[in-house]
């Protein structure tokens, strides 16, 4: 798609709104899961539950970043998507290599297989979306 005008496309409409919707769903899923785990059985797997909490926070901030759509919003979203991608890949590898480290599931375990691998696909889609809506040089 070639942009006709010099103005950057907003990240919060069109496909971006779908992306925000999915981020919101994951924010809800991860937040409630992490909240419950931390509140009820934190001692069983502190690393996994803290990680769930961090993942939840990142999904929330990414959704807000995409929805705010301004310069800052884009940078926030870019940072979140990058951290997410690194996180899901790192945790995916770690959870396969060392099961002791994550005795209970997190959103990112096994590359997000418990969530249909959407946690792996989502940051990639986010980065592609940010790239396609980037400010075109005038």
């Amino acid at each position: 798609m070639v942009e006709t005008g010099p103005a950057p496309r907003r990240t919060n409409s069109g496909p971006g709104r779908l992306l925000i919707a999915v981020y919101l769903l994951f924010a809800i899923a991860a937040t409630s899961r992490a909240g419950l785990q931390i509140a009820t059985k934190f001692d069983e797997a502190p690393v996994a539950y803290l990680l769930s909490g961090v993942a939840a926070l990142i999904y929330i901030v990414a959704a807000v970043g995409l929805a705010r759509a301004g310069h800052t919003g884009r940078r926030v979203a870019l940072a979140c998507c990058s951290v997410e991608l690194v996180g899901v890949v790192a945790v995916g590898i770690l959870s396969l290599a060392d099961k002791e480290l994550f005795p209970d599931e997190t959103v990112w375990s096994q590359f997000g297989s418990g969530y249909g691998y959407i946690p792996l696909v989502l940051p990639v889609l986010g980065l592609i979306w940010l790239w396609r809506t980037r400010r075109t040089p005038a």
Partner: peptide, 14 residues
């Protein structure tokens, strides 16, 4: 908020 095809995509996803 999204009266385009992407609005339908959101309904589908949810």
């Amino acid at each position: 908020m999204e009266p385009t095809r992407w609005g339908s995509a959101i309904v589908c996803a949810v």
